[in-house]
C-alpha cells in the first residue's frame, strides 16, 4: 500500500503544470502531472493517497466536470480548483461540493502550498476513517446472523428482556450472544458499540460486508 502522498496536477497548459510540480517538489513532496482530466482519470489507480490540483478551463472535461466525475466514481481525492477568472457561480458550487479551495490565478504566494497541506491533512483523515470503517465492517462480518440481530437491537437501546422477547429466545441466550458481540466488535460497552456503528454507517449501510 502506497503511503507517500502524491500531488496530481491537471492543467492543459504545459508551463503552468510544470510550475505547480516545481512548487510541490520544493515542498519536499512528489507530483505527477496530466495535460487533461481524461488522462488523469485513465491513469489514476484507486486508493493512491494525495490530492488533486486542477485548472478549471480545459479542452475536454473541465475542472468542474472532473470533480463531478470523481464523485460519480467515488474517488475521494481532495480537490483544489485553480481558476483564471473571477469566482463565478460554478466555482462557488465547486466549493460547496467539497473542493478544498478555489484559487484565483495568479494567487497570493502561500495559498496553493497552504491548500495542498490542508488537502493532504484531509486526505489522511479521510483515509484513516475509511480504514476504521473497513475494520468495523470486517468485525460486523465476523458476527453470526443471530449475533447480528442482537447487535441491531442492542444499539437501539433495548434491554436484554425485550431483545429475548423480540427474538423469541431465552434471556440467557441473549446474554451469551451479547458477550460474543462485545468481544468480536472490540467494544467494551453499549455506548462504545453505538459509536462504532455510527462510524460504520457514515457512508455505508451496516448490512454491507467489508
Amino acid at each position: 500500500m502506497e503511503t507517500e502522498p502524491t500531488i496530481f496536477v491537471v492543467d492543459d497548459e504545459e508551463q503552468s503544470r510544470a510550475s505547480v510540480c516545481a512548487l510541490v517538489q520544493s515542498m519536499g513532496m512528489q507530483a505527477e502531472s496530466f495535460s487533461s482530466a481524461e488522462q488523469f482519470l485513465c491513469s489514476y489507480r484507486e486508493g493512491r493517497p494525495g490530492c488533486l490540483v486542477t485548472d478549471v478551463r480545459m479542452p475536454g472535461l473541465n475542472g468542474l466536470e472532473l470533480q463531478e466525475e470523481l464523485q460519480r466514481r467515488d474517488i475521494g481525492l481532495p480537490l483544489i480548483v485553480i481558476t483564471a477568472y473571477a469566482r463565478t457561480s460554478s466555482t462557488v458550487r465547486a466549493v460547496q461540493r467539497g473542493a478544498v479551495a478555489v484559487l484565483d490565478k495568479p494567487y497570493e504566494n502561500d495559498d496553493l502550498a497552504e491548500a495542498i497541506r490542508t488537502a493532504l491533512t484531509r486526505d489522511a483523515a479521510r483515509r484513516s476513517e475509511q480504514e476504521q470503517q473497513r475494520q468495523i465492517h470486517r468485525r460486523i462480518g465476523s458476527l453470526t446472523p443471530s449475533e447480528r440481530k442482537v447487535l441491531d437491537l442492542m444499539v437501539r437501546g433495548l434491554p436484554n428482556k425485550s431483545i429475548a422477547k423480540r427474538l423469541n429466545v431465552s434471556v440467557r441466550t441473549v446474554e451469551s450472544r451479547r458477550h460474543a458481540v462485545f468481544s468480536k466488535m472490540q467494544a467494551p460497552s453499549v455506548v462504545a458499540l453505538m459509536r462504532v456503528m455510527m462510524i460504520a454507517e457514515l457512508d455505508a449501510s451496516p448490512h454491507r460486508g467489508a
Partner: peptide
C-alpha cells in the same frame, strides 16, 4: 497564465 507560472516557480 505566465504570471501564475512565475509565482509558482519563484515560490
Amino acid at each position: 497564465q505566465p504570471l501564475y507560472s512565475i509565482v509558482n516557480f519563484a515560490k
